[in-house]
């Protein structure tokens, strides 16, 4: 989504916090996401009155209540549909969808993919904690195969979704991943997502310390981060490790490989380009890790420019009006053959 057309306004974090006290479990990753958002919005210079947060059902869905903006807490999975109608009716608004892995990928999967392929100018934040938190701990569509939960005491039989792969497959024009342990990274990704014209999808690795504690610890933990998070930086060779000693290359079959930079040389590394129209490399990057337990790319996978739905809709209306003129009801009612009775 893009910034509203009005002049930048000066606000502080406090202005963006509502009078409602957040009611997530102590230590929940949602707090840091909320705080990153409340810190970012003053920087964006947008107006509270033109900002709308909508959500479905789940722990994450409480988010709008804590933002001193317009907000609607809706029903399970349907926020992207609601947001689509809202944004199309009101292109002047900044519309954010806050969702979770269950809300977005399970019950609301259909709305999510269609909002993305239409390229509606909304920003979708998906808090991925790989569990159902609100209903107290069942496996989710991102839980790993074999996950033992209350509803899968002998291990889940469901193959998980890879949300980034899904978003790229659904024609999303902006696809990114960040995590709740890095406020700066979150803010930067949110900023870019907000500024993107069209559907922006952001997966946020979020720790549910009550029902799935440490799900991302192997990659986001302070000590392991450098070795297990692969930062995607536009225009830069993809490399990671304490001293940037590891990197990513493409082999002659188009497969991505993690390599020792010393072995292959810096020039052999893949240079990240988020603007490539063809989604193959972005998709391959999304498949680099089989799960958040081995080196995993974070950052912006894809940010391509494509006409957004609302703009195309407005153009179409404009075009029809320039051909037919502004609609007149009296004329419409007489548009088929008519006859008069005296």
């Amino acid at each position: 989504m893009t910034m509203s057309m009005t002049e930048s306004v000066t606000t502080t974090k406090k202005d963006w916090a509502s009078d409602q006290e957040p009611r997530w479990c102590p230590g929940c990753g949602d707090y840091s996401i909320l705080s990153a958002m409340q810190l970012l919005l003053p920087e964006l210079g947008v107006e509270r009155s033109r900002t709308v947060f909508v959500s479905g059902i789940g722990c994450s869905a409480r988010f709008p209540y804590y933002m001193n903006t317009y907000g609607a807490h809706l029903i399970h999975g349907r926020a992207p549909a609601f947001a689509t109608g809202l944004k199309l009716a009101r292109p002047d608004l900044d519309v954010w969808v806050v969702s979770g892995d269950g809300d977005a990928l399970s019950i609301g999967g259909n709305h999510l993919i269609h909002a993305m392929r239409r390229n509606v100018d909304i920003t979708i934040l998906m808090f991925n904690n790989e569990i159902y938190g609100l209903t107290k701990g069942q496996y989710s569509p991102t839980s790993e195969l074999g996950k033992v939960t209350k509803s899968s005491p002998f291990g889940s039989l469901d193959t998980p979704f890879n949300p980034i792969s899904l978003a790229i497959g659904a024609e999303a024009t902006f696809v990114a991943r960040t995590h709740d342990m890095d406020r700066k990274h979150m803010m930067e990704v949110f900023r870019r997502a907000h500024d993107h014209k069209g559907s922006a999808f952001v997966e946020i690795y979020q720790n549910c310390n009550v029902f799935n504690n440490g799900a991302f610890e192997q990659i986001t933990g302070k000590e392991v981060r450098a070795d297990n998070l692969i930062p995607l930086v536009h225009g830069q060779p993809i490399r990671f490790g304490q001293n940037g000693e590891k990197g990513v290359t493409v082999d002659r079959y188009g497969r991505l490989r993690i390599v020792d930079v010393a072995e292959v040389g810096e020039d052999a590394l893949l240079v990240h380009d988020e603007t490539i129209e063809d989604p193959s490399i972005a998709f391959a990057l999304s498949r680099l890790a089989r799960g958040p337990f081995e080196p995993t790319p974070i950052g912006i996978f894809r940010a391509v420019s494509k006409p957004d739905y609302g703009t195309m809709m407005a153009d179409q209306i404009e075009k029809v009006r320039s051909q037919k003129g502004q609609g007149e009801l009296a004329k419409l009612l007489r548009s088929s053959s008519t006859w008069t009775v005296d």
Binding site: T84, G85, H114
Partner: peptide, 21 residues
């Protein structure tokens, strides 16, 4: 909007109504 399903049809209409349409 020819929606992806019946639920999105009414959901988008309600979203538009929230915006004043």
């Amino acid at each position: 909007l020819q929606a992806e399903d019946e639920i999105a049809g009414v959901g988008s209409a309600l979203g538009a109504a929230y915006g004043g349409a």
